[in-house]
Amino acid sequence: MNERAANGRRASVLAGLREFLYGMTGHEFARHAVATRASLETLFMVTCVGDMIGLPVMPPYYSLRLLPFVVPEIATWKRRVLRERQFSDEHDFELHGV
């Protein structure tokens, strides 16, 4: 019983340590990766359904094939692309100190 409790404690210490190390090292990378992915997503949406916000798109026929897959992204994308921008916006995704 005691042994099991000790094991449990060790496991949670290890998990905590792992989280801590992740926070020290990997988190910034992961955040950067997710942010870059989001930027690419914006670009992807513009290329596929840019005509929704007034940018002409080459082949509307095949865009429609992709439309069902991007339905959940449309609101976020529009908010992202059409919102007002701050001068400092483009520095948001820099990896500071790495």
């Binding site: 992740y22 992961a30 990766a33 997710v34 992915r37 690419l40 997503e41 670009l43 992807f44 290329t47």
Partner: peptide, 15 residues
Amino acid sequence: LREEMREYEEVAARM
């Protein structure tokens, strides 16, 4: 573009 997105997603998932 999509493949690049996929790569970044993989990196984040691995981390």
